[in-house]
Design a binder for these strands. Structure first.
Lengths: 146, 146
DNA sequence: GCTAATGTCTCTAGCAACTATAGCTTCAAG
DNA sequence: CTTGAAGCTATAGTTGCTAGAGACATTAGC
């Protein structure tokens, strides 16, 4: 049996985060020791590792909740899991495209900085005037984070 | 003179967001009409467009605050603005590298989905077992958002 | 056995950067 | 002159945690 600290260390998740996951129902309520401390077994470790890994891959907690409930019913067809993963992939691809465009624009900004006074600084100027962006790039509706 | 709605439409920023920017001091307090409605001029529009554009590029509001105070003092050297832009570029490059790795892993996950039952689904399996990731990729410490 | 250090407990509040709601007032068009 | 859209303030909610306070539990060293 693992205390919450050991569990966190093994799964690479901070202790308050584990308690938070329990609070929002991603992890079941843990059993307690005589002194009211949470105790975890192998199953909890696996579930937490699953969550951690999915978070690493950018899945939202809601998506993870769905994936967990799927994996709790292993006789169901896996179309739903596949759909979630595909949606996540599409989202990642969208973010990638966007970040690539941003990178190009930031690079132009930085390269053009004359090293002189603010008044002549392209960094500020480019930010102030959208029309100075590379001609074919209109910024998409702001939304680039998971 | 523009009302807050027109200003928002022209700058591509929602009305409550403008009020929020005023509240946190990114925009100066707007003048008011006889009926207590905010009125904006060209300068406010430019400043808001600047903010919008910088947000599009992924700058935090704190970074934008710094950039704005720089652009308010155009006689200063522009080293600081350049540094902020370079830091942002580095951050974008880090996120790009990470997202590229995630994309590869998600693609493998999706491709491997057998289309059968959850019990055999690689999507769930891969998420449950980090060791099934491509061999050379260790996930970085989770942190991929602006 | 005792003490000190660490670990854990609950609860509350805070972070970014907004978004949404409620209940009002003001404005512009017909 | 009335109606409906747009504006006002103030408060609370969102996501995914993180930090703090103050109390109890456990463990290591002596």
């Amino acid at each position: 049996m693992l205390t919450i600290g050991k569990l966190g260390a093994q799964a690479g998740v901070k202790v308050p985060t584990i308690r938070y996951y329990e609070q929002i129902g991603l992890l079941p309520e843990a059993g307690r020791s005589a002194g009211n401390q949470r105790l975890y077994g192998r199953k909890a470790l696996e579930r937490l590792a699953f969550i951690r890994h999915a978070r690493d891959l950018g899945f939202t907690l809601e998506a993870i909740r769905d994936l967990l409930s799927l994996s709790d019913n292993p006789e169901q067809p896996c179309v739903a899991a596949d759909a979630i993963a595909r949606a996540q992939l599409a989202e990642v691809e969208r973010r990638l495209a966007r970040l690539t465009a941003l990178k190009a624009e930031l690079e132009r900004m930085v390269v053009q900085c004359a090293g002189g006074k603010i008044a002549d600084c392209r960094v500020i100027e480019v930010l102030g005037d959208h029309s100075l962006c590379s001609t074919d790039h209109r910024h998409p509706e702001s939304e680039d984070s998971p």
